[in-house]
Design a protein around this nucleic acid. Structure first.
Lengths: 237, 237
DNA sequence: AGCAAACCGGAAAGCCCTATCCGATTCCCG
DNA sequence: CGGGAATCGGATAGGGCTTTCCGGTTTGCT
């Protein structure tokens, strides 16, 4: 009766906590893979290939897929701590006695996190259906952000027509600026964010087109999920 | 110069030097390729492969490369008329007696053009060193936009700290929103643009981080250009 | 040690892309 | 209407990426 049998079966792997301990060499490789993925995803975004991560890690391709059968599992493992920080940021923002500076500080923090890691910028603008832990964090942060919005509106600093979807819009816009400017203008995003934040401030300067529906945005994020295997084109009648 | 001849029938195509008329079947295929590219680039952006265009056009791959040895040449041929419209938009905006509405109308028009064609959205945010005609149009439109800015500042409607680089930033941000939302929230971009335009309006609501240097932005656009073979896409892309 | 399970990583299969080659086909003009 | 030249497009070479398979190696427990 070896406690170390075939394992797994059901338990996924995302939450390694309760899983069977890996053999020492396997665990070592796992760490190397995650470290390599952190580097590669941070530099190239989530579009980086699994093969390039394996190369960077110096392990065989098979080892890569054995440990992380899907890219989403790898992404979940790599960005778990970033997502924790993401959630923590809402708590910190809510701790700010000043509603408006809490609100703007949060937005700046999140956008800065995007700027610091191209992979994380991608994570924030696409849903990863296979990584429940990440999605749960996203939902939690979302709740916190709703609270930030409410506080900032109550204090009269935030425009009444601001909605949580506007943050998603900003994250997508920021991701666009970041991926376009890259290393060449690493602070360009700060200017975009500043423009937006000044516009969010009450009083309103005019009407705005309606924001997209929640469902539509969610759908968009899912569609974008992971160009895993063949971007999305595949057309060809 | 804008008089880019329509190359209908007789002579003159985009870059073919002395321009000897193509044989009828060659010309027919050329048109089919451009039409197909218009469709494919519009749907998938410039990251679409040459092969997929050839497939869509129903011609052999070799025919594709014979007519358009580089992707940039194809892009130039496909978006020549779009770029003309792009330049024309500045003239129309300058014709508006109201400086502010001319300014905002121009921005909205350009962003709408991005929304209408993912390929064009890419064209506007990356430089195509190999497509001189397009780059010339870009430069011409740029001059016109400088004029729009001057007028809007003179009338006191536009913030003094707005610079032409802010339009580039907005185009990149808009491209990000468009590629993230796609078909699922096709009007989301309008909200982003409205937020930004309201922020551009004088009086200023606060200081802004410095915009990126012109050289840095140009470098970024060049880097993004069209990396020989892959990278993004896939961006993604 | 000694051994079996767990693990490693190269190789291979399958798919898509770029770019070039070359025999077969089509066009155009005399 | 016939022939040479311009074109066509399948085929091929060369790379990447994903995913699976399998013989050889390492680990950990007895």
């Amino acid at each position: 009766m070896h406690p170390r049998d075939k394992h797994t079966g059901g338990a996924g792997s995302t939450a390694e906590s309760a899983a069977q301990p890996l053999r020492s060499d396997a665990e070592r490789n796992r760490e190397r893979i995650i470290a390599a993925a952190r580097t590669v995803f941070g530099r190239d975004g989530l579009s980086a290939s699994m093969a390039s991560v394996a190369r960077e890690a110096g392990v065989g391709i098979a080892t890569m897929f054995r440990r992380f059968p899907t890219k989403e599992e790898l992404v979940a493992a790599v960005f778990a701590d970033r997502m924790d920080a993401y959630v923590r940021a809402t708590a910190e923002a809510l701790a700010d006695p000043e509603p408006w500076s809490g609100f703007t500080g949060y937005i700046e923090t999140v956008c800065a996190m995007q700027a610091a890691d191209r992979g994380f910028a991608d994570v924030l603008t696409m849903s990863l259906p296979g990584a429940e832990a990440l999605e749960a964090c996203r939902a939690e942060a979302y709740q916190g952000f709703l609270e930030l919005i409410a506080r900032a509106k109550d204090s009269g600093d935030l425009r009444e027509d601001f909605t949580s979807r506007d943050l998603v819009l900003l994250l997508m816009a920021n991701a666009g600026v970041l991926s376009a400017t890259g290393e060449d203008a690493p602070d360009a995003w700060r200017r975009l964010v500043a423009w937006m934040i000044q516009s969010f401030r009450a009083p309103a300067r005019g009407a705005l087109p309606d924001p997209p529906e929640d469902a539509a945005l969610y759908k968009a994020m899912r569609r974008a999920s992971l160009g895993i295997t063949s971007l999305e084109t595949g057309k060809g009648r």
